[in-house]
Each structure stands twice: as C-alpha cells, then as structure tokens.
Write a protein that binds this DNA or RNA. Structure first.
Lengths: 201, 201, 201, 201
DNA sequence: GATGAATGAGGTTTCATTCAT
DNA sequence: CATGAATGAAACCTCATTCAT
C-alpha cells in the first residue's frame, strides 16, 4: 500500500522486505503467540533464517525489538486512522472508523504490535515505555476528540475518557475470544461494541 | 471472615496464615507487580522468609503456584458473588453486584489472582489451563444468566455473551488506568460502566 | 597459621577450605597465569570441580571474584606486615621487612592477588577500585612512615614517596624476570633492591 | 622528524598518515586506555573512520595489530636511544639519556606501545612474543653495556642486570602514578630515579 | 580498499529444580 | 520442614572474522 510506503520513506517504519523489517514482523508474530519472555532470540533469528548473533546487528538488545514492534504498530494504526477519519464527517461514523482500525489492529495478524503493547507493557523498561507513551498520547488524543463530541451530543452515557477506557478494554479482550474464522465478522463485532455504547438517536 | 473460613474448610482455599497460604499471597502480589516470568522462586521465597529450596516442599514447581494463585482467586470471587447475588432481586442490581465483585477483585490487592489470570494465561500449560477453565465456566455461567435476562428485557443493546466480553475487557483494562488513591471511587467507576451499557428504563 | 585463622575469624579472609575459599585461590592462580579477561568462569568452576552456574552462589558476578582475590591478598599482606614490623626497630630493618613481605607476596604463588592487583587494575569498575583503594591507602601509609624516616636520616637519596613508587615498580616487575627455581633466592633479590637504594651508613 | 622518516624508509615503521599508520596509532591509544582484551576491532575501526571489516585488509587479525604497535614502538625508542647515546660520553649521562628515552616513551602518549608491551605481554602468542623478543634483546643490550660500566666504576651498588630490572620496573610503574599535568616534570622524575640509584661521586 | 550483513563460537549470567544434611 | 550448595540447561549478548557486493 502507498500508506506503508510513505511511512517507510519518513523513517517511521522499517522497509518490510529488509532483514530488519522481516525481523520485526517475525518478532510481532512470536511475541503474540508465545509472549515476549518465552520467545528467545534464537527463535527470532531462526524465524528469519539467520543466527542469533546476527540479530544484534540490527538491534542493540532484545528489548529494542519489542519496542520497535510496538512503535511501528502504532505508527501504522495512526496513519490508517488519520486516513479513515478524513473520509467521514458524522461523529458516530468517526467512532466507527476508529473502532474498525483498532479492532482490526488487535485481531489481525498483520499488525500484532498493538496487541503486544497491551500484554507486554511491563516488559519494557521505563525509558522505552516513555518513548512509546509519546506516540500513545497522540493516538489517544484522536479518540478523546471524537468521544468528547459524542458525549456532548448525548449519544453516549458517560464521559469520553471513561468510554475510551471501556472501548480499549473491550477491544483488547476481544483478542482472547474472537475467532477470526468464526461466523461473526470482525466488522459485526465492532458494530456490536458501538451499538452497546451508543444510543440510536 | 466466615466466607474465607468456609472455603478453607472445604479445601478450596489454603489457610492464609500457613506457610503455603502466605506463599500464595506473596506470589499474587509479585506476579501482579513484576509478571510471572520475571518473578523468580527466590523472590517468592524471600518474600515469605524461607529459602528457595524450601518452596518445593509446598509446590511441585513454579507453575503450580501460579495455578494456585488463580484458582484460589476464582474460588474467592465465586463465593463473594454467590453471596452478593443472593441479596438482590432486580437484574440490574444483580449485574451491579457482579461488576462490584469483579471490579474489586481486579483493582484491589486483596485478590490479585484474578487479574493475573488475565495477564498470565499463556504462561500456563494446557493441563493447568483446562483445570482453571472448569472454574471459569461456572463463573461465566453466573454472568450469562443475568445478562441474558437483561437483554431479553431490552435493558442492554447487545446479546449477553457479547456484553459480558465487553464488561470483562473493560474491567481488566481498568487495572491499567484506574487509580485507587484518586478521586474516583471504585464504586463510581463500576457504576459508570453499568451506566454506559444499561438503559435507564 | 594462626595469622590466617585470625583473619578468617575477623571476616576479612574466606575460610580457605570452603568452596568460596577454594574458588578465590583458584581464581588467583588462573588470573595470574592467563589474565582476568582470558580466564572464563567455566575455567574457574572447573578448577574447583563445580559447574559454571554454581559460581554465582558465591559471587554475584565475575568481577566480584577479582575484587575478592585482591582484597584478601591485601589483608594477608597487611597482617604479615604488621607482624613483621613489630619485631624490628631499626628503620632499615623495617624497610627490609616490608620489602620481604611485598616481594614474597608478588613472587610466591601463595598470594597472587597482589600481583593481580597491579596487572588487572583496569578490569575493575570504579566502585570496586575505590573499595580496594581504601585498603591500599592503609597499606601505603605503612611504607610512607618508614621511608620518610629513612629520608630524614639521609639513608636514601630521594623522598620517601618517590622511593616507594620505585620500590613498588621494581618488585612488581621482578615477577616478570625472577625465577623462583633459579640460583638467586628471593631474599637475595630483595636485599639487592635495598642495597641499590639505601646507603651503607 | 627525520628520525621517523628514516624508519619509514627502512620499512620498520608504517607511514603515519597512511590508513595502516593511523590504525596503529589509534590502537596504541585504545590498548593503553582500555586494555587489549577490552578494545574491540569495532572500536579500532571507528577510531579511524572505517568499518570493522575493512580492518582486515591491513592486518590478518587483531593480535597482529598489537604486535605492530609494540614493534614499531620499540623501533622508535631504539632509534631515539642510538641518537641520544651518540651525543654523550659520560656513563652517567648515557644512563640519563636512556632513562629519558624510556621514561618519555612510557609516559608520553606519542608512543604508547612501549607501555602496552609491559601490560599486554601475555596477550601475545609465543610466536609473536619471540618476534618481539628479538628486538627487546637488542634494546636491553644497550642498557647492559652502560649499567655494567657504571657498576664497574662503583657508581651503582648492584650489578647492572639487576639495576636494569629495577629501573624498568620503576619506569613502567611511573605510568600508574605520574601525572603529566602535575608539578613534577618528567625530567625531574627521571632524575630522581637516577639520583636514587647512582652515587654522587 | 571499503562495506556491512552474517557467522558461529564462546562469553557471562539466570534460574527452576534437586538433594544430602 | 528447612537449608543452601550444586546442577545444568538455556538465556542474552559479544566479537573476531569472513565475504559477496
């Protein structure tokens, strides 16, 4: 997609076909499947066909890989969200666009870093956490604007900040029960969440 | 409390003052703070004032401690929930009682095992997962009954099973942002979640 | 010897027959023979008949072993020096006693830590260096007192502080050429150094 | 200087402005500061602005760099010493000239290889040691001649061979305490050493 | 000559677990 | 029951060296 290409150009995301890029992708999958602590650097290296020592040409240490996985994921979701938000006007539709982005990020294997951020946050040292928090603040700012509007218009029952926490929890948790191959489509799941929280006017 | 005493008597929960009981309590705190993988058996032993070797007189291995922490937590919450549900009739109040139980279990340090179940599920091997799932099914059954009723009565917008997933996610996530010492009480937070999902009739 | 026994009792030196004591002794030999960087913890462990992992029951890391080797060596030399100094009155004889102590410490395999301190000083991080410096200052204080007296009495040509540096260098370097099994005894070598620096009155 | 230029011409010393020459100079500094084992080829390469792989166009392996650093240093000191010795006649002045050469080599950063030889001797394999020993023997021969004369004339108290060892030790050790920026000049230090060992007639 | 990704052996350290005392 | 030294596998990481480009 042209979206990714632009992120690569800006240096925010690693070229997916490069060794480093393939490493980040493999790390995303493994961290999601097995967890960060139970994924060894040998696992990672084997997944991209190099030896474990070679890993440290691309990253100074294992935690830097975790950080890269998460940061690139946020950059990707952010870019998608800006795109999607620009296409609709209605606040409910803006919310739907955002839920779609986050829901897909969490439940699709294309961008597992987002889910990993939720489950492995404590595996990051304070410095890396802070670095990621900068991105998260930008990201959460988008949600706040839309949800505050909805609350002012009386379309949701509780303040935007709380509603955002509820939505985040619900979407993260969906990863633990939603079956991508089941009958329910991801879009239907996302719509149900919106329906649960937003009044039909 | 007589509640705990009875659970002890039934063999579902370890006597809290025994060495084993103190071990489980300490494990709950440490697993919550640092995560299961990053908590060493030495940490655990030191916390209760024994040496790491002695730990294995009480548990066959480290994972058995994790399992005990989780199972005892569910037993506790289940007992509290049965108690609380028996005291009210109105479905919304039943829901409130359940949200109170789970919300407190997650955000109080008294019973951290519930939160740990959510974050460390993948650290358990299939056998232990299955053993815990037996309890979880009983626990989720309670939720299903109440939420199905609410949906039939038109008080919530989406089916009970989905609403339950949303509530679970929202409550688990609350652990990541709710500040016990802040202005918002836990009860207020729980009420906001109910308000977000349930129609005022 | 009763001297060592007392140091053990005071906690300044590790019981030589304990695992830790044998480790320190083996480390002294290996660090002297191969150098600190080229001695692996596996080498060390093999030398005392344990596995490398077991090493870390006794020491938090490799550098702590180096530090222990050096500190215990200084404690030993210090104790010997106090003993020897107490037995003579004449300043030249006091100097001879000190040169004997240091010369033997450097050229005997009984106490290689002293030599190691000279050659591996840069392998220690600043904290460990400072800890050892506390001992060194006490040790150098003994030399200063005796050499200052000799200078005031006109028995040596240059100030005590410089003479001390020259003696230290000469004795450390002796390790690189003196042959314990050769014709020259260690005592003869030490006397030659004194003779080179001190006037026959 | 013409001295160095001639050494370059004879092939004994590498042209200082060439890549190889700059490499040897950088290696000298780093080996002196951090020690041979703790200096990586990456450090070396970075210091001269190339990548580590390129290093091996100039040297077959890391140890060859150490050897070159030492051998070139000895060639330099030897040349300086021949020059200086040719300018004076008096044995004491010859000794002073030699002490000046060696003292400066050790305490000046211009030619750190001499000091490195002392501290990193064990890092060399036997072949490289032997190769260097050929040079050292020539070098030590110069000292022997002068010191033997002084002993025969009764100007020093102990045989030349021992006195040489003492001087070498004292000068090498001076590197550990002499402060180039302090009040004492290097010449004063060197004179003190001579004064300590040589009788004023 | 230079690059830089990759190698692969080997380094230190961690840690759950065992077991003689 | 507790101890604590020892185990041994496995972890992360380092680094001299190679080699296709």
């Amino acid at each position: 997609m042209t979206g990714i290409a632009q992120l690569v150009e800006e240096g925010l995301v690693t070229e997916p076909d490069s060794a480093k890029g393939r490493l980040i992708k493999a790390a995303g999958q493994l961290f999601k499947e097995k967890g960060y602590a139970r994924t060894t650097v040998r696992d990672l290296a084997a997944e991209v066909g190099i030896l474990s020592g070679s890993l440290f040409h691309h990253f100074p240490n294992k935690e830097a890989i975790l950080r890269a996985v998460i940061e690139e994921a946020i950059h990707r979701v952010l870019a998608q969200m800006y795109d999607a938000l620009a296409k609709v006007e209605d606040p409910v539709e803006k919310l739907r666009a955002m839920v779609r982005c986050e829901g897909h990020a969490i439940n699709n294997d294309l961008n597992p870093g987002f889910q990993i951020m939720a489950s492995e946050w404590r595996s990051l040292n304070p410095e890396n956490q802070e670095s990621i928090l900068v991105l998260r603040r930008e990201y959460e700012g988008l949600w706040k604007k839309v949800l505050d509007t909805l609350f002012q218009q009386g379309l949701i029952n509780v303040e935007g900040s709380f509603t955002r926490h509820f939505i985040r929890g619900a979407l993260i948790e969906s990863h633990n029960w939603y079956d991508v191959d089941g009958k329910l489509t991801l879009e239907q799941l996302e719509d149900k969440l919106i329906q649960a929280l937003v009044h039909s006017p």
